[in-house]
Nucleic acid binder design. Structure first.
Lengths: 220, 220
DNA sequence: ACCTGAACACCGTTCAAGT
DNA sequence: ACCTGAACACCGTTCAAGT
């Protein structure tokens, strides 16, 4: 990480991804970012006018990579499905990218390009423009929320394992209570904790994708 | 706001909602919350062990109210639709509640009750348990993401109008560029800004809800 | 039981001053 | 052109001390 060469925007962005991966977006600070680059926090402000602006650049980078990895195979249903799978793959490759996109979305030109790209896929359907737009918005909302959710759940999971290490045993999720509580009949039947542990899996993600694609088809 | 009676948990929670409504979750601070209650920030820690814990209580309150407002009319499709509409209404009634739920979701007992309630609606369908669960997760993800999105978009909108007041004219969304850019053919045809202005509307929300419900039906 | 002052270890951002 | 020290106005949280 230590270099004598002058800092560039590119190096700051690269270090930002590292910091996000290591500390998460809630612990991303200008001071830590500067430390990682062997400079002082104040120096960052020569390259970027604010932390928010760094986030915007990161978000646009993600949006760009989502579009780059696109190939258009099969019918519209297959295309939409592949787009969803690929978008999630990119979101997983860039730490906290769902948060970044959610925060900065409508201002980024790349975001609009994403929208346009998906509208093309759905344009051949015999739907009102308004419904095409709603379909794509729903599709993207689902994907983003799925990853936001996964991130939060992972955070809780890490806190718990940390507490166990510290012999604190706080048990944020005391599932044992629900296991015995007869008021949650269906969840109980579904093997409560197994179901919740399966949240965030590839399988669950793809089922959601299928639901939305089938739903769009049905809207015609 | 000024009272001589001793502060209670209930008063702190009430003041928290006010603060969220007035300042948003990103400007919710213990110091501001204390000020609103005419006490000092340190005093809050006698009632709640942390800011995070206050958020957890707020989130559970929202989840509780979503369940309370429930009536079960019609077939499963109608029920699910009404649930979605009602859930969004509650999310809109409590400021930043989508963020609160997203942050604290899996640890809250009320959240599990929400899940169970929706699973009951969908339980009569001839689906694998796994797919019932995925359906509900998809449904809830969509609703939360829709409101998160609306919140962020509103934030940007407020910043812009503020800038216009300040004669800064930064134009975070310079839509005029896209309007002329021929690479966004479909969005252009759809009246670019009109479409984006329509984002977050009741109509768009309900279309998304319908898509997911039709999709779940198709999964059987 | 309930509240406070003072402190600790942080933040993002600015800006005059250095090279 | 690029970086820094020092400061400003904040954070969340703790804790001995007050009533």
């Amino acid at each position: 990480m230590k270099q004598n060469m002058p800092i560039t925007k590119e190096k700051i962005i690269a270090a930002s991804w590292e910091l996000l991966r290591g500390k998460g977006i809630e612990n991303f600070t200008m001071r830590k970012l500067a430390e990682q680059l062997d400079i002082k926090a104040a120096s960052l402000y020569w390259h970027f006018k604010s932390k928010q602006h760094i986030f915007q650049v990161l978000a646009e980078e993600v949006a760009k990579h989502i579009l780059l990895a696109e190939r258009d195979d099969g019918d519209w249903k297959e295309q939409l499905f592949q787009f969803g799978v690929n978008m999630r793959k990119q979101l997983q490759a860039y730490p906290c990218s769902a948060q970044l996109l959610m925060q900065t979305m409508p201002s980024a030109p790349e975001y609009v390009a994403l929208f346009e790209h998906m509208l093309v896929v759905v344009d051949k359907l015999s739907l009102k423009d308004k419904d095409k737009f709603s379909s794509i918005a729903c599709f993207m909302d689902y994907i983003l929320a799925f990853e936001l959710d996964a991130y939060e759940r992972n955070k809780v999971r890490l806190e718990i394992t940390q507490d166990i290490e510290n012999k604190e045993q706080k048990s944020y999720l005391n599932l044992s209570i629900y296991k015995r509580d007869s008021s949650f009949k269906i969840l109980h039947r579904m093997h409560f904790n197994g179901m919740f542990k399966n949240m965030g899996s590839d399988d669950m993600f793809e089922t959601g994708l299928k639901i939305i694609i089938l739903g769009i088809e049905q809207l015609t």
